[in-house]
Design a protein around this nucleic acid. Structure first.
Length: 347
DNA sequence: CTGCAGTATG
């Protein structure tokens, strides 16, 4: 008879000890905070003889990538190479993609196919993503063909990645076609298309899709709103913008920095600096985009004192960008205050 | 044991 579960830690049979070691290493692996912790853990994994295991090598590859050390991901992958395990290939392709090494990611994908190893549904999202970010239309088309050859076209994640890819290619018709053909859609599908319409300047279409998404019962989130606020601002759709602000408050995502920044810039485009000021004052978390948006917005509306004040307040915490520096210098010129202008640049 | 989406601009 097996010992009861709560006793298993005290059982010293070799199997169980190995299991305990495995699970503590896995737990430690997922909570590693930086690369030096991870390297220490990595050596323990090797000492325990688990370095070549599929699960541990895959997790090490992903963890190094998560900590922005894709070179180490590659070196782990080398220790298990050559491998015919798809999970390990997926891990290295994803590791390179998430660190912006798109060409290298596609290189591994090509190499994988050359070894006649079949990709699976998890392989494609990162591969499609790499094609998208490289604006590699040719490779994108080829990969899309692979997806269809393998019958993965109804996979939700792959479909969403394809929508995003065609949006980045500027082919909104194809993106829309992908969206319409999907057997099921989630909020990422809707958000990808809405954001694609926005980044290509199709503001009305973006708002139209937003309304369709609401009618289909999708609850908007911060991704939706960051796109839709931009559309309202660009169209100076004041009424719609106010309505969307109301929805943001109602569903409680006003605390999201990107959403807050979207509200700031929309109200500046509406030339409603008082609303902007109110939103700014209520923002619990601010980043450099927040400050730069405020400084440039006030300066554009001729509120020079406000913009200089904000510049002085931000520069201890965040680095101002070129634009807020130039607009502050201009603001100082308008105020006829050379002292502040000089101070704000030298301090 | 893995995969997809977001912000400001003299």
């Amino acid at each position: 008879m097996k010992p009861p579960k709560f006793c298993s830690n005290f059982n010293s049979s070799p199997e169980t000890a190995q299991e305990v070691l495995r699970s503590s290493l896995l737990k430690a692996l997922s909570s590693a905070k930086n690369t030096s912790q991870l390297r220490a853990l990595h050596s323990w994994i090797i000492i325990s003889g688990l370095g070549l295991s599929v699960v541990f090598s895959g997790k090490l590859i992903s963890k190094y990538a998560q900590l922005k050390d894709p070179i180490s991901s590659v070196s782990v992958f080398r220790t298990v190479s050559p491998t015919r395990n798809v999970y390990q290939w997926n891990s290295i392709i994803r590791a390179l993609t998430r660190n912006g090494l798109f060409t290298q990611a596609l290189g591994y994908y090509t190499e994988m196919r050359e070894t006649k190893l079949q990709p699976d549904a998890y392989t494609f999202p990162s591969v499609i993503n790499s094609c998208a970010r490289l604006l590699d239309l040719k490779m994108g088309r080829v990969v899309h063909e692979h997806v269809e050859e393998m019958g993965f076209e109804s996979d939700l994640y792959i479909g969403n990645a394809l929508i995003d890819m065609y949006c980045r290619f500027g082919d909104l018709e194809k993106a829309r076609y992908m969206f319409d053909e999907m057997s099921d859609r989630d909020s990422v599908s809707w958000n990808s298309l809405i954001s694609g319409y926005c980044s290509n300047g199709f503001w009305e279409e973006a708002l139209d899709m937003y309304h369709k998404s609401r009618m289909s019962g999708i609850v908007p989130d911060c991704f939706t709103m960051s796109s839709v606020l931009l559309a309202c601002g660009s169209l100076t759709a004041v009424e719609e913008g106010l309505k969307i602000h109301g929805v943001i408050e109602k569903i409680g995502i006003g605390g999201d920095i990107v959403t807050g920044n979207g509200l700031l810039s929309m109200y500046f485009k509406f030339e409603r600096p008082r609303e902007t000021g109110r939103v700014f004052a209520e923002m619990a978390a601010k980043d450099s985009v927040t400050w730069n948006t405020m400084i440039c917005g006030y300066s554009q509306l001729g509120w020079h004192e406000e913009s200089v004040k904000l510049f002085m307040a931000m520069k201890d915490e965040f680095a101002p960008d070129v634009l807020s520096v130039t607009s502050t210098i201009r603001a100082c010129g308008h105020l006829g205050d050379l002292r502040i202008g000089k101070k704000s640049l030298t301090q």
